[in-house]
């Protein structure tokens, strides 16, 4: 009996061990599942932020003969809703415009222009037909929404007044 008892103890221990092992496996699976669920739950509300973090940061090439050293901290700074490094309005669609438009030309060609959605659409078509712009797929609509919203024409009549804000007044001493 003691022997039997002993056997029982051994069996129980083995049983417990097996139980612990399978529990461990089970918990590991749950652990992984939880990590996944938490990850997904976090990703959904933070999707755009995370994509932004993952998207490439602008890096500036320094040319050897250049005397100007850029301030690296400024590169992804956004001030008053404007992305400083490109001068583009920082708003939905910004990443699509930066990623697709500034491959060939600088962002200044975007920011200095004004057009309706139709006008911007014609420019994209012209670039695709003659300048080697690729198929933009679903990004086309996002890019057009962005451009039409933030780079729309302003009514200015037959000729605008001199822009008095732009004038730097100075004293001119005359004989």
């Amino acid at each position: 009996m003691p022997n039997h008892q002993h056997m029982d103890e051994q069996q129980k221990e083995a049983y417990d061990k097996a139980l612990r092992d399978s529990f461990r496996v089970l918990m590991s699976a749950i652990k992984l599942l939880l990590i996944l669920v938490v990850g997904i739950l976090l990703y959904i509300p933070l999707k755009s932020d995370i994509q932004q973090w993952l998207s490439p940061k602008p890096v500036v090439k320094t040319v050897s003969n250049s005397g100007v050293q850029p301030n690296e901290e400024d590169f992804d700074k956004v001030e008053n809703g404007v992305h400083l490094a490109t001068g583009l309005k920082f708003a939905p669609g910004f990443e699509d415009v930066r990623a697709n438009c500034t491959v060939c030309h600088s962002a200044a060609l975007v920011t200095q222009n004004r057009a309706t959605r139709e006008g911007w659409d014609q420019m994209l078509t012209w670039m695709q037909e003659t300048q080697g712009l690729w198929d933009l797929g679903p990004k086309r609509a996002r890019i057009l929404d962005y451009l039409a919203e933030y780079y729309a024409p302003e009514a200015q009549g037959r000729r605008a007044s001199l822009d008095l804000q732009e004038i730097e007044w100075y004293i001119l001493d005359l004989e």
Partner: peptide, 21 residues
């Protein structure tokens, strides 16, 4: 990752380039 991303990885054209001559 973003912080330590090697410099020069991004195409130069992605930056506006106002910083070089």
């Amino acid at each position: 990752f973003g912080h330590f991303m090697p410099k020069g990885l991004t195409p130069v054209a992605l930056s506006n380039g106002a910083s070089f001559d």
